[in-house]
Computed example of a mutant assay.
Amino acid sequence: MRIIVYGSLRRKQGNSHWMTNAQWLGDMQIEGYALYSLGHYPGVIPGEGTVYCEVYRIDATTLGELDALRTKAGEYKRQLMQTPYGSAWLYVYQRPVKGRQRIASGDWLRRDDPPSDA
């Protein structure tokens, strides 16, 4: 099975250790989603925009661990999406984003970059 990660689970990020047993398949962009900062990690919701992601092959144990981390309090819900690497799970944020900072670049790795004037 495969998973799409867009924030703290990406390479060299704070929660990347959860992906130790995962196989990186490649980078991609998902259209029709907006990325928001939730503090130390982000959330995506359906909306206008592009979000930069990584796709991994994972085993059932890793998926179970990620579900416990992401879905236990109803914060995220898994959604199956098509990717260039086959279908993959995406964790979609389920709570209101009012008052949260939208990351206009759609890239968690560039969240601290100043907004573009373009």
Rank of each mutant, 00 (worst) to 15 (best):
M1T: 13
R2I: 05
R2Q: 09
R2M: 06
R2C: 09
I4R: 02
I4G: 00
G7W: 00
S8L: 05
S8N: 06
L9D: 00
R11M: 02
K12I: 00
K12E: 12
G14Y: 08
G14M: 07
N15Y: 09
H17K: 11
M19N: 01
T20P: 01
N21I: 03
L25P: 11
G26A: 07
G26K: 07
D27Y: 08
D27Q: 11
D27R: 07
E31V: 12
G32F: 08
G32C: 12
Y33R: 13
A34W: 02
L35G: 06
S37I: 04
L38A: 14
G39L: 04
Y41P: 08
Y41W: 11
G43S: 02
G43L: 01
G43A: 04
I45M: 02
E48L: 08
G49A: 01
T50E: 09
T50N: 06
V51I: 09
C53S: 02
V55M: 06
I58P: 00
A60T: 13
T62I: 03
L63G: 03
L63P: 05
G64E: 01
L66W: 01
D67M: 04
D67T: 07
D67F: 00
R70C: 05
K72N: 06
K72L: 10
K72I: 06
K72S: 12
K72D: 08
A73C: 10
G74V: 09
G74Y: 13
E75I: 05
K77T: 10
R78F: 09
Q79E: 11
L80M: 09
M81T: 06
Q82K: 08
Y85T: 12
S87A: 14
W89N: 07
W89R: 05
L90F: 00
V92L: 10
Y93R: 07
Q94C: 14
Q94V: 11
Q94A: 11
Q94Y: 11
Q94W: 08
R95D: 15
P96H: 02
P96S: 06
K98M: 08
R100W: 07
R102A: 03
S105E: 10
L109R: 14
R110L: 15
R111T: 02
D113I: 00
D113Y: 03
D113V: 00
P114Q: 01
P115Q: 07
S116C: 13
S116H: 13
S116F: 14
A118H: 15
A118L: 14
